[in-house]
Design a binder for these strands. Sequence first.
RNA 1: GCUUCCUUAGCCAAGUUGGUAAGGCAAUUGACUGCAACUCAAUGACCGAUGGUUCAAAUCCGUCAGGAAGCUCCA
Length: 449
Amino acid sequence: MVIYLTMKINLYNSLTNKVEEFKTIKPGEVSMYVCGPTVYSDPHIGNMRPVVLFDTLNRFFTYVGYKVKFVSNFTNVDDKIINKAIKENVSEEVISERYTKDYMDCLDALNILPAYKRPKVTEYMDDIIKYIANLVNINAAYVVDGDVFFDVMKVKDYGCLSKIKIDDLISGARVELNDKKHNPLDFALWKKTENGIKWHTDWCEGRPGWHTECCVMIDSIFGGVIDIHGGGLDLKFPHHENEIAQAMATHNNKIAHYWIHNGMMNINSEKMSKSLGNVIKAKDGINLYGADTIRLLLLNCQYRNTLNFTDDAVRDTNAILDKLNNCYKQLNLKLALEGVKLEGKSDLINPFLESMSDDINLPNAITNLLDMIKLANSELRNKDCSLDKLKEYFYALSGMIYVLGLHINVRIYTSDEISLYKEYLDSKKSKDFVKSDELRKVLIEKEVL
RNA sequence: GCUUCCUUAGCCAAGUUGGUAAGGCAAUUGACUGCAACUCAAUGACCGAUGGUUCAAAUCCGUCAGGAAGCUCCA
């Protein structure tokens, strides 16, 4: 397993807009942080794209032998949460916990690996306040009437991630008007608030802005620069840009060596939006189409491209899944019948791993999967099929299924099931079709066939 | 207006250190099969348009057209 650590992995870095060779900071260990949800409503299906993508990346790293420290946060302090709490006349915690649970339910359904940590903003308030205080101390931030703003002019590289020039932004059509700010691009680190949960600080009673929490959590949990920071493309600006600005001011680093952004998702070529009424909630999508279908559908598209969710895409995805399930089941059964060990690894998975190493080229990896299925099916049809080959195919497919995170497991058959299956094969051989048809019915009921 | 990105067969979709285009779905044909399911094989594109660089470009550069996202704490 560890031998794969020598594998060369390339990743597209949003920071440089180039494909770069992936080198970890600590040998054999990957630190990865992905921006999580603001827990104020049900997650929709598009929210699951980064979830599934980065989980698959996590699985890939794990499979090839890395230890992965995966962290994703919950924003549980936010205007939307406060407003919803007021509307329902409950505490903010009730709201945020409700939707945190909903979110976690979706992750469970989608077979997401446990994270190293899933921190919440409220758990890091002391660190956040200290972090902001330091920014004020070093003069990268300023206080106006209790509000604290970050001064973007204090950072040389502001715009390095989004490739946006400060001057262009300022002359842009839609810059927020705020008399308090020195510069329209300055963003709130801490704001004075009337409603909702608030914390006491020297500046005022209030709560933090959105952009600081990720910096602080990464600092506190990882204690320095990390390997990968991920998130949706929509977060690139201003959120990730502002994270980098704060880290540059604080530590003179850009938080992560590799910034990875997944593309957005459309439904029938339209952006999901409440006004169009085309939003599919994640849990509804999972219930309607199945977790594996959703997972594979989200993965079967270059991750930086816009993904279009359509009925055709669902159909295509199911075709792949059906093939995989059928083939895997037949291999499993055949090997079980012959008493071959069902756990193992095979080098036949290498093309798949190479596709994954090529900037997470999942469409090609899935093609590799289909190639393997084709080989296995042909061999299964072969009258004197080679058990060794079937075993290799099975092991390779098992690895791919693990990386893709599908709910397809190795099945251990009971001796009764095996003998029933043998009986079925014998009856077919002796052309006792009445009996074989009956046995087939039973076997299908038991999901052996 | 500014920034970034996209445009490949009926549909979905890979493919940038340049050298005559993966795969899937659908369709048609054939093979296998006691029947069914499953499966296998064969058949299609000169890569948005137009210039340029080059012996050679889907792949590099220019222009145009169409589309997307961001610039508004929405992944």
